[in-house]
Design a protein around this nucleic acid. Structure first.
Length: 353
DNA sequence: CAGCCGTGGAC
DNA sequence: TGTCCAAGGCT
């Protein structure tokens, strides 16, 4: 009978190879009795949803420097939080982050729930995040299943069922391996393993602490797992965006509605974005509009976008019918989501306006 | 349950 | 250039 993977083998590896991260309490400190701050663990987990560690680091440091406690965050203005989140993507996370901080502050006395069940009730906290926070912040033996764990389990047990259909089976396997000792370190260890050794491409099976019990490694199928159902091709949408500056330096911007794409974020007024050719539409303000020679290109999760960028220098006496003027000193380009910043760069940096 | 929801780096 | 992918959640 083949040997089974042991949590202890992975924890020994983690003790030697744990990655250092701004929000992490490493294995040595944890053994010395250092407890993680649930606020920081929660925030890191929200930021890490579908987002790489490298991308999150700077955002995490900026957020926790500006808002060191959940009460500080709860007291923040919506626009400040959305502006700090700009560029990180999936903006519903930022709206839920603030909603959750205010709930914890106002209804829970500023104390994060410490059980999976109660964490799951918080806005923006799903099965993965509830498990991760309960394990990492509170050292509870929760089963944590993210993309890394799915990949590691599919390879350990050579599971060829494509995702997402395989999710229940992979979760069952993960639960069976979760130890009652050091569950917080274990949860992070599996994810570190998946991110470094058991990687999507070219897994380093030769140095894996679980190479011996890994079935896919013996079968030679590790690199092709997990299987995934094929994705739909992305359509291309087109639109027009209006980047205007008034003669006093103010910019014509609008706050997007909370629901939908780039919800709650600052942006330039413009047309709808559609696959069909855009019908003629009203300009946001009366001015002498010029079309830039280069269009702004951007790719979202489920479509490509080509934006025609129009610019204008607007006299003082005009009133916008879409958007509001923001004084130059109140505007930071870094508050814009990336597609809007691309349009800004084309209009005001590349074109030199 | 499948579609919606961002971004930047790797290849 | 294009595609894949990353510590998912919500509807």
């Amino acid at each position: 009978m083949r040997d089974q993977p042991k949590a202890a083998e992975l924890l020994d590896w983690y003790d030697q190879h744990a990655r250092k991260m701004p929000w992490r309490v490493g294995p040595a400190d944890r053994k010395a009795g250092v407890a993680p701050d649930p606020y920081r663990i929660w925030m890191s987990e929200i930021m890490l949803q579908q987002t790489t560690v490298a991308a999150v680091k700077d955002f995490f440091l900026r957020f926790t420097t500006r808002w060191p406690t959940v009460q500080d965050l709860a007291a923040a203005k919506d626009e400040d939080v959305m502006g700090e989140w700009a560029g990180l993507g999936y903006y519903a996370r930022a709206r839920n982050l603030l909603k959750c901080a205010r709930h914890v502050t106002d209804e829970l006395g500023g104390v994060f729930p410490d059980t999976y069940e109660d964490l799951l009730k918080l806005p923006g906290v799903g099965p993965y995040t509830a498990g991760a926070v309960s394990a990492i912040a509170f050292d509870q033996a929760a089963t944590v299943v993210d993309g890394n764990v799915e990949r590691v389990m599919s390879r350990l047990y050579d599971i060829h069922t494509p995702l997402p259909a395989a999710k229940p089976e992979l979760t069952e396997r993960a639960a069976a391996l979760t130890p009652s000792k050091r569950p917080g370190d274990y949860a992070q260890a599996v994810m570190d393993l998946g991110a470094t050794i058991c990687s999507p491409k070219n897994p380093a099976c030769g140095i894996c602490p679980w190479r011996s019990p890994c079935i896919a490694r013996r079968q030679g199928t590790a690199a092709e797992l997990p299987k995934k159902t094929p994705k739909k091709p992305k359509p291309t949408r087109v639109g027009t965006i209006y980047v205007a500056r008034r003669v006093d330096g103010a910019f014509l911007l609008e706050r997007r509605p909370d629901k939908g794409l780039l919800g709650g974020m600052l942006g330039w007024p413009g047309s709808e974005w559609q696959e069909a050719k855009v019908a003629e539409h009203q300009k946001p303000i009366s001015a002498e509009w010029k079309t830039l020679p280069t269009e702004a290109r951007h790719t979202f999760t489920h479509f490509h976008l080509k934006l025609t960028v129009k610019t204008a220098l607007v006299p003082m006496d005009r009133t916008p019918n879409q958007g509001d003027f923001v004084a130059q000193q109140d505007f930071r380009p870094s508050d814009l989501p990336t597609v809007m910043r691309k349009a800004f760069d084309l209009a005001f940096v590349k074109a030199g306006n």
